[in-house]
Nucleic acid binder design. Structure first.
Lengths: 144, 144
DNA sequence: TTATAAAAAGACATCAATATCTTTTTATAG
DNA sequence: CTATAAAAAGATATTGATGTCTTTTTATAA
């Protein structure tokens, strides 16, 4: 479904958010260790997230990654949009270049339902809500 | 969602099925033209589908691709399983190597619902049902 | 039995996603 | 001001998905 790069992004954001709650600003080495992702590649992903202004970063001693507005919910939808692009949510399931109610592919109607469910999911869940589940030990961050 | 290769496979199967209904056995050149896919690559995809016994093929003059048992429904699920592998349906949405009710990722429950919807879709729809929609002009095979 | 048509097979080629390595820039501590 | 810590940037590498080209095998028709 999502590319690895997007998965790293979501996991990294959740980890950063949780660390921020404790007043810390983790760096990419720590993050990659904790979310089980390749170190340098994670640095690139974090760079992209910072450029897209989903997070902020500070260079130099004591630097790291953090949320400027931790109270503002950041939906998984927003993360996917930044990482995968907008068309991710509209691509035809049958592979047609164009596909709509006017001249639909044979999967169009059923696929619209499933996609709608996915859309609601990523609009409902946020980095904050995922972090809460982990804080409340209703979910885990990693697993061997 | 699905890889291009799988999309070509599904479109090709639907086209072959429709042609078979008219007593014809299309070859890969005709198929690739009609489903808008690269010619040689489509030949490889068809080879794989034949090796997996989802279709049969005949070499030589008058040869081409066809369904041995056109009356036996072939689900989209079966096609995806052959093309993408079984794990396609169980991969964790958050990217964890293992993820289940015991120690779920923070997307687990919501994701299970969406995936369930997708699973029902691909188990319900078949090459035959897609072909019917096209025959009845309720859907189209390609679009520029 | 030879020419032809078609799929199968094998070898490459290209491109995007994923990943690593090195150098540069920036900030802070001492 | 110098050493150090950290992110940013640039260059390169690897891998898997996608795509092409050439040769081989198989079947049929004439």
């Amino acid at each position: 479904m999502l590319g690895k790069t997007t998965e790293y992004a979501i996991r990294a954001l959740v980890y950063i958010f949780i660390q921020n709650q404790e007043g810390k600003r983790p760096g990419f080495k720590e993050i990659s260790k904790k979310i089980d992702s390749p170190e340098q590649f994670t640095a690139k992903v974090l760079q992209n997230l910072a450029r897209a202004e989903l997070i902020s970063s500070i260079k130099g001693r004591g630097g790291g990654f953090f949320f400027d507005q931790p109270a503002t919910p950041l939906t998984i939808y927003d993360v996917i949009r930044v990482m995968e692009g907008e068309k991710f949510f509209s691509k035809c399931g049958f592979g047609l270049k164009r596909c709509d109610g006017e001249s639909p592919c044979p999967l169009h109607d059923d696929y619209a339902v499933v996609r709608g469910g996915f859309f609601r999911l990523v609009k409902k869940e946020t980095i904050q809500s995922l972090a809460n589940k982990i804080n409340e030990q209703k979910a885990v961050m990693t697993r061997l």
